[in-house]
Design a binder for these strands. Structure first.
Lengths: 218, 218
DNA sequence: CGAGTATGTTACCGATCAGTACCTAAACGT
DNA sequence: ACGTTTAGGTACTGATCGGTAACATACTCG
């Protein structure tokens, strides 16, 4: 089949006429997520990347190194989502929260039958694996960003709320692997209900000007 | 170094003078939980069980068969915990719920640095693995039992409450692998707060002890 | 005792896997 | 044109792993 489509400089996303390192990371992302880190061999990744094992080892000095790159890729993309939500809703913490829930809803509406790739990787990785620390710091960062958002949006008890929302999200993604019609299918409703019931009413969010942190309600 | 202690018929729990199948299951339980299903080989299990690979294969026809037995063991023990909570609090759904939360608290106070063994196994297992269905049905059963308990204790919206409590518990156990001082360390407080705020007041169990006001779910 | 059974021990097979050596072919800038 | 870099391909090594064969030993129970 034709891999080099008509327009050469186009940023074709699903084509395989891209630099090999990118192809390898794409293949690793797909296979690692679907089948786990340990069950997927480097040969299978190289083959899925339309290349061979030697080229893989020219770009990654070991399989563990590839795993680290895989984790870094996922983490930075998650951070980019967060930054996009921030930049698209400037200065309005409440809108950012709502946009985040919309994002969660979109995540669950897409194929997610294997849950959170980072959490799954953490299950398979030893405590000493260098990727493990990346996952831990990512998860900690996300929870902290949630808490800060709740604080900025003047919610009651932002720490508790962030804990609850974060754990519900985590629990839903681990539990979706035990069936798509379980409690995970209703997590978005739960999140929306949590946000509604925890919202502060004496502080209307009409003017979007104060992205300051001096107004810490609690 | 004496493994056969003085009292022979004693039900010594940590000794290794037990039938080999039991030793193998104990070793598998420890190693599978600590290091995962794929990274632990049958040789390591046999060695930890103070026996050898042949004896292992006389009791389990394959490693997958041992994995199934490992999952069945965990599931039946979880069911026994639930039955014990029931029998120790006869006819009182609220007491049973409180006892369950106490059990959860005990779980988190003990060593749990690797989260839920069943959830971790589900991450590592393919969808076609026979143990996967066991895990799914176990998780579904636990959530259903929680919902029935909330219903019997006359809580508002037992389905939603069971979803929330279940996902919080699941999320806490997957997240504890990213650090013991994270939101998982506060999940018991969250559960107690959820139970307190969701309790129905117009239908007291023993007396008119109106607990909470209205619809603040969390 | 003796026969049958459960267990221990060693050695091995075949497959898979991470990682490498070596060579060839294309792309590239000068 | 040229040399350099990058990528593809093949074949290999060494280790590990799941699983088995064959034999030796211990235990149990009639």
């Amino acid at each position: 089949m034709n891999t080099t489509q008509s327009n050469g400089t186009r940023k074709a996303c699903d084509l395989a006429a891209r630099p090999p390192r990118e192809r390898i990371l794409l293949a690793a992302r797909d296979l690692f997520y679907r089948h786990g880190l340990h069950t997927v061999g480097v040969d299978a990744i190289a083959e899925a990347a339309l290349t061979n094992k030697m080229t893989l080892y020219r770009h990654f000095k070991s399989k563990d190194d590839l795993i680290v790159a895989y984790i870094q890729q996922l983490a930075s993309e998650g951070d980019e989502v967060w930054e996009r939500i921030f930049s698209e809703n400037p200065g309005d913490p409440q809108k950012r929260l709502d946009a985040w829930v919309d994002f969660v809803e979109e995540v669950f509406s897409n194929k997610l039958e294997r849950g959170c790739a980072l959490a799954n990787a953490a299950v398979e990785l030893d405590s000493e694996h260098p990727a493990k620390a990346l996952i831990e710091s990512y998860k900690r960062r996300k929870r902290g960003q949630l808490e800060k958002l709740f604080k900025d949006a003047r919610y009651h008890d932002p720490r508790l709320l962030a804990d609850e929302v974060f754990l519900l999200f985590e629990g839903a993604r681990i539990n979706i692997q035990c069936g798509k019609r379980g409690p995970a299918s209703r997590v978005v409703q739960m999140l929306r209900k949590l946000l509604a019931s925890g919202r502060r009413r004496n502080r209307p969010e009409g003017n979007a000007k104060s992205e300051r942190r001096n107004d810490t309600a609690l």
